[in-house]
Design a protein around this nucleic acid. Structure first.
Lengths: 224, 224
DNA sequence: GCATGTGAATGGATTCACAGCT
DNA sequence: AGCTGTGAATCCATTCACATGC
């Protein structure tokens, strides 16, 4: 069984021979390629990309070879077409609607977050069970709905990604709700281990763990 | 060179033979042990812990063996003392002051975030260069200061951890400011590759990458 | 008997090094 | 000459399996 550690990995998802590590690096390359393209660069070599990220150039070539033969020997990679190809591979060549459950500090911040509302993603609704919040909307105009409207909105907007931004105690129930409404991918910010389910990909982001990891590094560096 | 991928890893920090993977799992065990202790459980076996996280029990024993011989053969681990030991190892047996740079949606949400204000961490100040924000404070009362006060507050409060919650374009400068003020550990939420520096541990959280990874999983599962 | 701690085996990710194309 | 794509080698995390101690 692959370790469900670190927030990575989950159930059911095929990866077509592309590991999670490679996928995450593809995202990074994509961002860099967008910058290069904006700067008018036409081609780039794996060695040049490697410098930017302190990575080995062979790794970059392997990662890119995973998703097709894209380079030209003696030349490098064509920036524009590589960027497009990666975007297509990651499935962000069109816009996926996202809903967020939990309209607390974190949920509303994420709803208005730039990175969640451009280039492939768009937050279409927030949900919360607090009647004082429902009916209102965030600074950027994302509406907060009551739980009952979840299924309707998910179906109407064809929502594929749900974000859990509720306290730990409510996370399991919310996960059931999202999965029950037919959402196939979930990003979980609650500090709990959600159980895997068939046909639903779950990825966890655990900010406490990141902080604790820094704390550990301080301690072992004798800085503490 | 260790890969600075995925937000993990960074410069200079010794890890005493404890890998980043192990460290992150220790955080998870810690949380589980706290629950077991609250429930009055006295001892727990690696097999029992393994069930909770869909991990292999040998892995848990190896992780725990890394930080000392803590188990009792034939019995298991004493919940209370193991919890304390892990907390000490992670350096969260005392409270570390944290500052956040960037008082936008994300920065203020993090400042008020529960997980950042209990059991070892406390957000003591926000900083922003927008004069309209400085002088005010968050819902939970974390004050927003102008940049000029950074060094003074870092020294007075002995701040050890800085969080970057500004747009990508400002991240490098802010990183310089934090490092310059003597902060030895940085958690970066901006989507940029910060350059490594001696004596500063940097960890990145890149929420876009997490979303894109979900998108990829959807696409490969044929769900898209 | 039961559960830890750990050497050995496995599996996967990274790096090396070079053949092959432009 | 320059740079990709890739088998071989290496490194590291995970898992197995068992000797060791309670």
């Amino acid at each position: 069984m692959p370790s469900p550690l670190k927030g990575l990995r989950a159930s059911g998802a095929e990866r077509d021979g592309v590991s999670e590590f490679t996928t995450e690096r593809l995202s990074i390359y994509l961002r860099c390629l967008a910058q290069l393209e904006a700067a008018g660069t036409e081609t780039v070599s794996s060695a040049r990309l490697a410098e930017c990220f302190h990575l080995n150039s062979a790794q970059i070539r392997k990662d890119l070879a995973c998703i097709g033969e894209l380079g030209i020997r003696g030349v490098g990679y064509r920036v524009a077409s590589l960027r497009e190809h990666i975007a297509r591979t990651l499935g962000i060549d069109r816009t996926r609607p996202v809903v967020i459950f939990g309209a607390g500090n974190l949920g509303t911040a994420l709803a208005d977050h730039r990175g969640f509302n451009e280039n492939g993603f768009s937050v279409v609704a927030l949900f919360d069970d607090d009647p004082a919040k429902t009916g209102t909307s965030t600074r950027n105009g994302v509406a907060i709905h009551p739980v009952e409207r979840l299924r309707e909105i998910v179906e109407r907007e064809r929502v594929e990604i749900g974000i859990i931004a509720v306290p730990a105690s409510a996370a399991h129930i919310v996960c059931d709700l999202l999965a029950g409404a037919g959402i196939p991918a979930i990003l979980n910010f609650a500090p709990v281990q959600l159980e895997l389910r068939d046909g639903v990909v779950i990825k966890c982001v655990d900010l406490r763990i990141d902080l604790e990891s820094l704390s550990f590094a301080l301690r072992s560096a004798g800085r503490s």
